[in-house]
Structures are given as structure tokens and as C-alpha cells.
Design a protein around this nucleic acid. Structure first.
Length: 907
RNA sequence: GGGCAAUUAGCUCAGUCGGUUAGAGCGUUCGCUUCACAUGCGAAAGGUCAGUGGUUCGAGCCCACUAUUGCCCACCA
């Protein structure tokens, strides 16, 4: 497609129904080939930057992505039209565990395993898999219409980004902010890796609390402890109670005996132990519980690990070795029961940690891992938000962010998987065995272990002894250890690139609340640590997309409305419209097909209204308008031309304002209302008889042009397609200028007049409808009004009333008498009689009037109540009181007239 | 245990600074193949704004408590 060749087609070439399919692909290609999405640091414009939350390479587009990326595209298209140098950086995340799981699954189908393939071969497979499927989601984003700068597409495992990861690791290590140590971490026995605290999802589970009897050595006494995980008793090395707990005072200095294994257990006191829970006595399992681990460190207890990495029991479990942890639980419970050691079993609801990738129950597990010290790093990220350098929308997330930051814990960053950034640490075996201290960077605060080499690049030999056989740490880094650098690593960091200088910090980050801790908070930390500046000025947090039943949409649940299906069926604009229209600020949204039907209908309305305008354009008039680039003289504009232009400018203001405030649904509903209910329902209908007049021709073009521009960020395809068919300047609507409010066009006087006339037309239509008058039939109408102003207006606009209400003769005056056999309608102080010769049914008309009377009386009662209240009259603002008084007068007037009309009917 | 959100028409939801007769879409009812659009046009019905108490001249909106639902966080085993 070529814009130059696309002159206005003859009207009959426009079909009655908008078909998005033919349009979307062509325009997207056109935009790409014109490089409209590309941004350059050489620009003289102000920058506006957005980085995409990189979807996982395993991802297939779902409604959540559709929402997230539509929002970003709206921002970016809006800012681009406003004249910013706009950059939207796209890319994907390697998603360590998720991707490894997916590839392992496909290997399993081939009867293979990663262990059988070996590390190198397995990684080749993953890269192959990524080549094949890793771009699916990117292609799908094209279909939504996303205007990302695709030439800058990044991947978290790209060479540049990998370099950034290593740089960050080494820098933090040298500052003493990365350390290795043996601690209790969250272990997923299925993925067989450590997880960070954030990667554990807690779920309320109804389990049991088991009461077990532990004998006291050398006595016939015992102590009863309560546990939810009886199998961990095999790893017990102590029993404890609160130092103030009198019940157990007699146990001080004694030793308990572990049932089944007869291990001797120290008895300790610690105020960490809650005397109110269970029996107040606690079994202590240092290797399998974080609290117990702390107790063990404090009291110098032994650590007994009873688990293998896969969740089966190891040799420390004696006779239970080899059993899966849940099998073991069953067996142990039944044996304890047999031996009368299990005294009681109570139902117990508690939170159980699950792996966020595979939902397997997590085990607290003692193992050596790498950690980032977060406390000091968090400080500038906290300050930036407190000082308002970065703001959250909706505001409530500020607190969530700050709470997490203020209680931040060290981040476990090593993962025992293969797919990911390898930890840049090597070991020189000979130095290690000899205990030779390593070369320490000059102002380093760190203690380094013998033989440990931390390096940005793969070292060829040991920097201490020259040994060439160095062994790299087998583990990889948490996926989020690359994601947290995204706002600057994608712009070239650690190089001092021009891009960074121009585009950093980014403007707005758009994401869902489920990754505030994983991603947003950590990006804030990294941005301050490595760039010395906040990574984004605004964070917009949107809701999660759910299905009609409220479940989070997911493929596995089979409840997903597939955005691609919606695009195929209704078009991308309908998808975008639907998803935006239901997104109130930050609320979760419930997606169903009907929502997108509304979008399709709206697109079709835009299409048909435009088609009507195009069919009725007088090329000569338009040509001269375009040529002069001037609006016609005000005298050439009819009252409704001026009315719709006033409404248009009000809409320009409201839509721009809503977008600035990130109120997307407000912006689109303003546009929907303006276009459909003001422009189509009233203006176009009113304009039909005089459509060839210069003023109307110009107004039609002006309103359509500006409205399409306002709509473009929301519905990019149809607006471009239609805009190209109306007289326009410029190549593409997406590079055209955002409409500016023209205050001179806002005319409150004409709006008030138009509203009166519209109400009058509606009143007549109401009567017609109530009396079932054939729509084709014209009616005789008489209007009585006491006020000059209203009479003048109605007389001035009488042709419109005649036209829109199908009136045959219209009489307007102060002393108009009610015609015989007529029905009455009241608006304000205006009384309208519609002649119903032969149709009038006194009974029915009386009922109508009585109904209206009831309404009026109810309102009068409310108003009188207020006006009789002295406090109201005294304390309320003057305008409000006056308004209420006017209203009351008017209602009294209306009541009087209704009563008169009722009287007439009784004859 | 702590926190956040939601509760408005039959359904799904808006409602900004406390101030007209509380809005929209869908659905419903009535009438229309009116020459842009039946994916449409015109008209209408439909509400104790979860409950209780308070602040205020005035509350869907502010405050307190309660109820129901959902989510997040937390080392009560």
C-alpha cells in the first residue's frame, strides 16, 4: 500500500460494514516501512520513553498482555502525536525456570531428559526452541498494533544484556553487597532449585496439627510437642520452650529422646517460641525450618538434613530413606500412632508455600546460595518515591511498595538450573585446597574465599597461581537479576551510550501489580545504584484480567478469551476498545466476548458515519477550505455547526486531560459519547438537509478529522483507514498533530440553546412514541412559553424541530391555546401540545399527566424541605441556594400547568 | 495476625472537588427495513448506592463500626 496512490475512492467502494482484516495488516506494514515507530537520540524533540515489561519467551499472548500493551501503545501514540521523540523499547525475557520447564517437558515427550543430554546439548536445545517459538508473542503484539521500535528489540540473554548482568554482579560483589552462604532457602523439589521469597506463593491449606510425645531421658516423663510436618521430626536436634513457661521449668538441663530414631535432643529456652501455640513446646529442626535455623545458630545446635534435592528422604532418615516426603509423612504418622506416640490430630489451617512456576509444595532447605544484601541498596529507591520523583498510579500502591522496601530481605539470586546467566565466579582448585588467599580488589570490603575468582570475563587462568583449570560455578542467576536492569541495559548500559543520555530515565512504566516486588521495586533499586537516577517517573499499575467467573485467565483453566481470536473475529480496534473501556483505574477487569462486541459496533459506527460524510462531501467546497487552511467565516456556520464545534473542543480538552491523568476508560467513554451520541445522533441528523452548505461541509470535515485523531491512540487502524479517505494534510494520522483545544470555539450560549431545542424534540418524540404515532406520520404541534428568551430560541430553531420531530405545522407563542384532542409535554417552562386527532384516549392521557404530577410533587417536596431549612439558606453557597430556588419556582409552575391540563381532560 | 480492594439498575461496571432529577453498555418492553449504519434508529421501564451510626445546611462520595467477597503480606511450629 502506498499513501500517495490512495486518493479518495468513489463512495460505492466503501462497504456497509467495516472489515478490519483487509485494513490492519496493510497499515501496520505501511507504518513499519515508513519507520514511524523508530526513535532517535539525535532528535531535537523532548524524549518520551517506555520500556515494555518483557513477556516471557514461553508466552502466548493473553488478555493480560493485550491490556498491558494496549495501554502502553495509547500512551506512546498520544505522546508521539503531541510531538515528543517517542521510544517504546520492546523485547523478551528468557524466563529461566519457566523456559527450562517447557523445554524439559518437550524433551520428555521425545523420551529424553536434560540429564541425558548434558548441559551443553540441553542449552543448544533451549536456544533452538527460542528461535522457533520465542518470537510468537512479538508477532502477536504486531497484530494488536503496538508501535514499538522493533529495530531495538532486546532479549535478556543478548550479549549486551549479559554483559550488563556480569558487570552488575562484579560491582556488587566488590562492594560487598553480594555474598555466598549456607542458609535456609525455599527449595522446589520438582524444579530442583532454590527460589527467592517472592517466588513462593502462600496458600491457605487445611492440614493437621499432630501432637507427639517425646520422652525425657532418664525419667518416665515426657514432653508433648505439636507439628504440622511430622516427617521433619527425623531432622530434629532439639526441643524448646519459652523461658517464662512454668509448665516446662522442670525440663531445664534435661535431654529429650527423638521417637523412632532415639536421637538425643537438647532442651533449650528461647523467647522466639510462642507459649500459646500448640502445647508451648517446640520441636526444633534446624535444617528444615527457618525459625529453627535461627534457633540453632543462636544455641549452637546441630543441623541434620533429611532430604535429597528431589524431595525424597536421604540416609539421615534411617529406615525411611528413599521415600518421598509425603509418603514418609503417612508412614511416620501411622507408626507413631501404633506406638501411641501420636496423641492427637487436629485440623489446622495454615499457609503453605508453593512454587510460583509449578505449584509444588516448597521445602525450607539448607543449602549454599548467593545473596544480594538489599537493605542499603533500597535506601535511594525508598527516598525517590517518598520525594515524589517516581509516582504510582493508583496511589495506593505507593504504600505497598514502601512497606516491602522497608522490610526488604536479602535476595537469593542463585538457581540450580541450566537456562540463564551463568554466575561469573570460578574456583581455582589448587588455591582452594592450599588455602591461598585470592587477590582482592583494592577498596573492596569483602572477604573472599581461597580459590574464588569473580570476573567480568571468563578468566584464562587463576590470577593468583596461574593455574589454567578453573571451574565455573554451575548455577545460574535468577531471571529477575537481568530484568531489574531492563530500563538501562536495553539502552546500551554499561556503555555510556547516546541512547542512555537521551532516553533515560524512562517516562512511564505500565505493568500489573503482581510484579511490583519482583520487578518494579528491583528496577528502582538498580536504577539508582547503577544510573544514579530513578528508572521511570511514573508507574501505572493496572489490574489483572479475569474471566466472567472471576478466575484469573489462564490457558490451563481453559477460560481464556483469546485476544487473537477476538482480533480475527472483531478486529484489533474492537479488542483495544473493549479492553480499555472496562479498565477503571487499577481495578481488575472481567473480560467476556460481549465487551468486544461493543468495540466492534463502535468501530462500525465510526466507519459508517465517516462513509456518510465522505459520500456527501462537495469536493469543490472542501478543496477551497483545505487550500485556504481557514475555517469559514462564523456567519457561514449554522447554530448546530457551532454547537458541535463547541462540543468537539470540550471533548478535545476532556480526552487530553484524562490521558494526562492516565484515566484511559474515561478518555474512551468521552470519545464514544461524543462521537455516537452527539455527532452521529444529533449533529449529522440535523445537518442532513443543509449538508451542502459551506459551513456544514467544513464542520463535518473538521469534527471527523479531529475526532479520528483523538481516537487514534485507542483505535489506530480504523482511524488511519478512514482518515486517509477524508480530506487531510499529512501522510499518516499517526504522525499528525494531536488536536489542540480552541477556546474560542467553546460557546456555552449556543450549547444551552441547542440543549433546549434537543429537549423539545425529545419531548415531542416522547409523546409520539407514547401514543404510538406512526413514525412516518407528521404531527401538528403547538408550543406555549411564557418567556421571551425561550420563545425566540424555539422560533429560531423551528425548522430543526420540524425536521427532527416530524412536525407538519408548528405554532410557537406566549398565548398559544391548547388544541383540542392533544397530548401535553413539559420541559422547563415550555409546554408542548401534540395534536392527536382521533387518537386521544382521555383515560390514558390522564394517567400520563398524573404520573408526571407525582414526579413533580416528589421533587418539590425535596426542594421545599431544603429551602425551608434555615441552616441550608444560611450556610450553603449562594449560587446553590439560588439554583434551588429557581428550580422550585419552575417545578411549581410545571405543577400548576399539569393540574390545568388535568382539569381540561375531566371534561 | 497485618494490610488493600470491592459491595451502585436484571447482568457487567463508571461516578473526578460532598451540591441539578445517581450514569453507561448489555439485557428487557414498545415502535421502526427512515435513501451512513439492524453491528442500526426512536421511545421507555428498571435504583432504600451492602448495613448501622456519625460529621455536615447537604453524603453514593468524608469518618467509625459491622457484614459479605476477593487479593496481598507475615518465621505460630
Amino acid at each position: 500500500m502506498n499513501t500517495q496512490n490512495r486518493t479518495n475512492p468513489p463512495p460505492d467502494a466503501l462497504s456497509k460494514v467495516y472489515s478490519p482484516k483487509q485494513v490492519e495488516k496493510a497499515w501496520y506494514q505501511q507504518w513499519l516501512s515508513k519507520r514511524y515507530f523508530s526513535a532517535s537520540f539525535k532528535s531535537k524533540k523532548k524524549p518520551y520513553t517506555v520500556v515494555i515489561p518483557p513477556p516471557n519467551i514461553t508466552g502466548i499472548l493473553h488478555m493480560g498482555h493485550a491490556l498491558n500493551n494496549t495501554l502502553q501503545d495509547i500512551l506512546v501514540r498520544h505522546k508521539r502525536m503531541q510531538g515528543f521523540e517517542t521510544l517504546w523499547v520492546p523485547g523478551t525475557d528468557h524466563a529461566g525456570i519457566a523456559t527450562q520447564n517447557v523445554v524439559e517437558k518437550s524433551l520428555k515427550e521425545e523420551g529424553l531428559s536434560r540429564q541425558a543430554l548434558g548441559r551443553e546439548e540441553f542449552l543448544k536445545r533451549v536456544w533452538k526452541w527460542r528461535e522457533k517459538y520465542g518470537h510468537t508473542i512479538i508477532r502477536q503484539l504486531h497484530r494488536i498494533g503496538c508501535s514499538c521500535d522493533w529495530e531495538r528489540t532486546r532479549f535478556t540473554m543478548d550479549e549486551g544484556l549479559s554483559k550488563a548482568v556480569r558487570e552488575v554482579f562484579v560491582r556488587l560483589y566488590e562492594k560487598g553487597l553480594i555474598y555466598r552462604g549456607k542458609y535456609i532457602i525455599n527449595w522446589c523439589p520438582r524444579c530442583q532449585t532454590a527460589l527467592s521469597d517472592e517466588e513462593v506463593q502462600h496458600k491457605e491449606i487445611t492440614g493437621h496439627l499432630y501432637y507427639l510425645k517425646y520422652a525425657i531421658e532418664g525419667t518416665d516423663q515426657h514432653v508433648t510437642i505439636a507439628t504440622t510436618r511430622p516427617e521433619t521430626m527425623l531432622g530434629d536436634t532439639a526441643v524448646g520452650y519459652h523461658p517464662g513457661d512454668e509448665r516446662y521449668r522442670h525440663l531445664e538441663g534435661k535431654t529429650a529422646l527423638l521417637p523412632l530414631l532415639n536421637r538425643r535432643l537438647t532442651i533449650i529456652q528461647d523467647d522466639l517460641i510462642d507459649p500459646k501455640f500448640g502445647t508451648g513446646a517446640l520441636k526444633i529442626t534446624p535444617a528444615h525450618d527457618p525459625v529453627d535455623f535461627n534457633l540453632a545458630e543462636k544455641h549452637g545446635l546441630e543441623y541434620v538434613n533429611i532430604l535429597n534435592p528431589d524431595g525424597t528422604l536421604n540416609e539421615n532418615a534411617g529406615p525411611y530413606k528413599g521415600l518421598d516426603r509425603f509418603e514418609a509423612r503417612k508412614k511416620i504418622v501411622s507408626e507413631l500412632e501404633d506406638r501411641r506416640i501420636l496423641l492427637e490430630m487436629k485440623e489446622h489451617v495454615h499457609a503453605v508455600g508453593h512454587c510460583y512456576r509449578c505449584q509444588t509444595v516448597i521445602e525450607p532447605y539448607l543449602s549454599p546460595q548467593w545473596f544480594v544484601r538489599m537493605k542499603s541498596l533500597a535506601k535511594p529507591a525508598i527516598a525517590a518515591v517518598k520525594e515524589g520523583k517516581t509516582t504510582f498510579t493508583p496511589k495506593r500502591w505507593t504504600k505497598v511498595y514502601l512497606d516491602w522496601m522497608n522490610h526488604i530481605k536479602d535476595w537469593c539470586i542463585s538457581r540450580q538450573i541450566w537456562w540463564g546467566h551463568r554466575i561469573p565466579v570460578w574456583t581455582c582448585e589448587s588455591c582452594r585446597s592450599k588455602g591461598t588467599p585470592p587477590k582482592t580488589p583494592k577498596d573492596s570490603k569483602i572477604y573472599t574465599e581461597p580459590g574464588m575468582v569473580v570476573s567480568r570475563e571468563t578468566p584464562k587462568k587463576c590470577p593468583v597461581c596461574g593455574n589454567a583449570e578453573l571451574v565455573q560455578d554451575p548455577d545460574v542467576l535468577d531471571t529477575w537479576f537481568s530484568s531489574w536492569l531492563w530500563p538501562f541495559s536495553t539502552l546500551g548500559w554499561p556503555e555510556k551510550s547516546e541512547e542512555l543520555k537521551f532516553f533515560y530515565p524512562t517516562s512511564c512504566l505500565v505493568t500489573g501489580y503482581e510484579i511490583i516486588f519482583f520487578w518494579v521495586a528491583r528496577m528502582m533499586i538498580a536504577g539508582h545504584e547503577f544510573m544514579g537516577k530513578e528508572p521511570f517517573k511514573e508507574v501505572y499499575i493496572h489490574g489483572i484480567v479475569r474471566d466472567q467467573t472471576g478466575a484469573k485467565m489462564s490457558k490451563s483453566l481453559g477460560n481464556a478469551v483469546d485476544p487473537i481470536h477476538i482480533i480475527d473475529e472483531y478486529g484489533a480496534d474492537a479488542l483495544r476498545y473493549g479492553i480499555i473501556s472496562i479498565t477503571a483505574e487499577g481495578q481488575d477487569v472481567y473480560a467476556s466476548k460481549e465487551k468486544f462486541e461493543v468495540g466492534r459496533n463502535f468501530a462500525n459506527k465510526v466507519w459508517n458515519a465517516s462513509r456518510f460524510v465522505i459520500m456527501n462531501l462537495d469536493k469543490k467546497i472542501i478543496h477551497s477550505c483545505l487550500k485556504s487552511n481557514q475555517a469559514p467565516k462564523i456567519t457561514l456556520l449554522g447554530p448546530f455547526d457551532r454547537w458541535i464545534l463547541s462540543r468537539l473542543n470540550q471533548t478535545i480538552f476532556n480526552v487530553t486531560d484524562s490521558l494526562e491523568k492516565l484515566r484511559f476508560n474515561e478518555a474512551i467513554s468521552t470519545l464514544y459519547d461524543f462521537f455516537w451520541h452527539h455527532f452521529c445522533d444529533w449533529y449529522v441528523e440535523l445537518a442532513k438537509p443543509g449538508i451542502r452548505s459551506e459551513g456544514t461541509q467544513w464542520t463535518l470535515c473538521e469534527v471527523l478529522d479531529k475526532t479520528l485523531k483523538l481516537l487514534h491512540p485507542f483505535m489506530p487502524f480504523i482511524t488511519e483507514e478512514v482518515w486517509q479517505k477524508i480530506p487531510h494534510r499529512g501522510e499518516s494520522i499517526m504522525t499528525s498533530a494531536w488536536p489542540k483545544l480552541d477556546k474560542k470555539r467553546i460557546d456555552t450560549k449556543i450549547e444551552a440553546e441547542a440543549e433546549l431545542v434537543i429537549s423539545e424534540i425529545q419531548a415531542i418524540r416522547n409523546v409520539r412514541s407514547a401514543w404510538q404515532i406512526n413514525p412516518k406520520e407528521r404531527v401538528t404541534v403547538a408550543v406555549k412559553t411564557a418567556r421571551d428568551r425561550e420563545m425566540k430560541i424555539l422560533k429560531n430553531y423551528s425548522t430543526y424541530i420540524v425536521q427532527m420531530a416530524k412536525v407538519s405545522s408548528l405554532q410557537i407563542g406566549k398565548n398559544v391555546k391548547r388544541p383540542k384532542e392533544s397530548a401535553v409535554a413539559n420541559i422547563g417552562r415550555v409546554e408542548t401540545y401534540v395534536v392527536l386527532s382521533g387518537l386521544i384516549d382521555t383515560q390514558m392521557e390522564r394517567q400520563r399527566i398524573e404520573c408526571a404530577l407525582l414526579d413533580v410533587e416528589k421533587m418539590i417536596r425535596g426542594l421545599q424541605g431544603r429551602l425551608r431549612n434555615e441552616d441550608f439558606v444560611k450556610k450553603a453557597p449562594k449560587e446553590i441556594v439560588e439554583r434551588e430556588q429557581r428550580k422550585a419556582e419552575e417545578l411549581e409552575n410545571r405543577k400548576k400547568r399539569l393540574l390545568e391540563n388535568l382539569k381540561v381532560l375531566t371534561y
